[in-house]
């Protein structure tokens, strides 16, 4: 089983947030918190991403966007919802256009609460996501190996 957890690449998607959480996400990459020491790279490219980080709720317009981003990410992948908005819809929940949290669009693995979520808890969420990423990767490798031996047996 290959070790993949040293290299989690994050794709940050800003849903209908107030931008508070987004600033905290970026703060996690600044010198004070420096998420890059875990190998985290903030990539803008779903094809290269391992962890989808969603801030803000899901509305009628970004529903398909989030779904598409998720589909474009190669397996194994992990989804983290950052902030109360992304967890449940938060302060915007009652708005006419808001459908709810990120889990209305894609299966969310880790919920990071807080309004705004603090950089410490965001990094904690990413670290947990990284563990899950490793686990999924092992499962993915096992599945690929099983499929290979299956075709060979035929």
């Amino acid at each position: 089983m290959a070790k993949v957890k040293e290299s989690p690449w994050v794709l940050h998607y800003d849903g209908s947030s107030c931008n508070g959480c987004d600033i905290e996400v970026l703060a996690s990459l600044t010198p004070v918190y420096d998420a890059e020491r875990f190998g985290v790279v903030n990539t803008g490219d779903p094809l290269q991403a391992d962890i989808l980080l969603i801030t803000g709720g899901i509305n009628t317009q970004n529903l398909s966007v989030v779904k598409q981003l998720y589909d474009q990410m190669p397996r194994p992948k992990v989804v983290v919802a950052v902030g109360t908005c992304a967890c449940t819809g938060g302060i915007f929940k009652e708005c006419y256009n808001i459908l709810g949290g990120a889990d209305k669009a894609v299966p969310v693995d880790i919920y990071v609460p807080g309004c705004a979520a603090r950089p410490q808890s965001i990094i904690d969420g990413i670290v947990q996501a990284v563990e899950l990423f490793q686990k999924r990767s092992d499962e993915h490798d096992a599945a690929v190996a099983a499929a290979k031996s299956g075709t060979q047996a035929k």
């Binding site: 290959a2 070790k3 993949v4 040293e6 290299s7 690449w9 600044t30 010198p31 420096d34 890059e36 020491r37 875990f38 190998g39 790279v41 094809l47 290269q48 391992d50 474009q72 190669p74 397996r75 194994p76 990767s137 993915h140 490798d141």
Partner: peptide
């Protein structure tokens, strides 16, 4: 680069970790 920006930065072997991970991902 990280040190120049006042960060701790990744391990020196980070590029190898990245490539090893990329090799293990689903090919799209």
């Amino acid at each position: 680069s990280a040190r120049l920006q006042g960060r701790i930065g990744p391990s020196i072997l980070q590029p190898f970790y990245d490539v090893r991970k990329l090799m293990n991902k689903q090919v799209i």
